[in-house]
Simulated assay, not measured.
Amino acid sequence: MNELRLSIRQTFAAIGIESRAAQQSIQSYSGDQQIKQPQAEMNFSSTPAQLEIDSSQAWSALAKGPHMEWNQQLYSQMKSVFLQNLAQRVQEGHQMANITNKRNAFADIAKNKVFDQSLVNYIPETPDYDNVHISYSPGDVDTAITPSLVEIEYTPIKPEIQVDRGKLDIYLRQKNSISIDVTTYDWYK
């Protein structure tokens, strides 16, 4: 017995895709830069320092000062020296007038005269380490600085960009299809 047989065959569609990546190249160059800075203006002014040394007191202490100053110092002592000598003569007169004294007044006076110190001070100043006077006044320095501004010029250079576009191809690699066939079928075969 022959029967009819229905055969359905199907093929699916297939899509094909081909792609190529894009390529990009960039070349960037340094820009042109110029920096200028004029010199700053500087003005300096100064006053000289002053050094004063006064050694007159040291020379005077060494008795090597001005002659008139030394004489003046000696003469200024004369009044007191005269009064002291006068007082000493009065005392010696009293000593000689004292007849009750068993000692020899003239011998005592002569002995004291041998060892007497002079009443005149021949050293005008006392020698000392600080007889020289030094005074120092430092000078002044005036500084005036006027700064200058920095001038910067920059010229940029555009980068060179090259792009090779990519490619994307989409296509139908296999078509879809359905085939329906009716065939006879022999059951016993």
Rank of each mutant, 00 (worst) to 15 (best):
1 M>G: 08
3 E>Q: 01
4 L>M: 09
4 L>K: 09
7 S>A: 12
8 I>C: 04
9 R>Q: 12
9 R>S: 13
11 T>A: 10
12 F>I: 06
12 F>W: 07
12 F>S: 13
18 E>N: 13
19 S>C: 15
20 R>C: 05
26 I>V: 08
26 I>W: 09
27 Q>P: 00
29 Y>F: 15
29 Y>T: 15
42 M>R: 10
43 N>W: 06
43 N>F: 05
46 S>E: 12
50 Q>V: 06
51 L>W: 08
57 Q>R: 15
58 A>R: 02
59 W>E: 05
60 S>T: 00
60 S>D: 03
62 L>D: 01
62 L>C: 03
63 A>V: 12
63 A>F: 13
64 K>A: 13
65 G>N: 04
65 G>I: 03
67 H>D: 10
68 M>L: 14
71 N>E: 08
71 N>Y: 08
71 N>M: 10
74 L>I: 15
74 L>D: 12
75 Y>P: 01
77 Q>T: 09
77 Q>E: 07
79 K>G: 03
79 K>I: 09
80 S>L: 06
83 L>A: 11
84 Q>S: 04
86 L>R: 06
86 L>K: 08
86 L>N: 03
92 E>D: 15
92 E>A: 09
94 H>P: 01
95 Q>D: 15
96 M>D: 04
97 A>I: 01
99 I>M: 12
100 T>N: 14
100 T>M: 11
101 N>C: 02
103 R>V: 11
105 A>K: 10
108 D>H: 03
111 K>T: 14
112 N>V: 13
114 V>P: 04
116 D>V: 00
123 I>W: 14
124 P>V: 01
125 E>V: 07
127 P>W: 04
128 D>A: 15
130 D>Q: 06
131 N>E: 10
132 V>K: 01
133 H>A: 06
135 S>W: 02
137 S>I: 08
138 P>D: 02
140 D>G: 00
141 V>E: 00
142 D>T: 03
145 I>A: 01
146 T>H: 11
146 T>K: 10
148 S>N: 08
149 L>M: 11
151 E>Y: 06
153 E>R: 14
153 E>Q: 15
155 T>D: 14
155 T>H: 13
156 P>N: 07
157 I>C: 06
157 I>P: 03
160 E>Y: 12
160 E>C: 04
162 Q>S: 15
163 V>F: 15
165 R>W: 06
168 L>R: 03
171 Y>F: 14
171 Y>Q: 02
173 R>V: 03
175 K>A: 05
175 K>I: 05
178 I>N: 09
179 S>T: 10
181 D>P: 04
182 V>T: 15
185 Y>V: 00
185 Y>G: 04
188 Y>M: 11
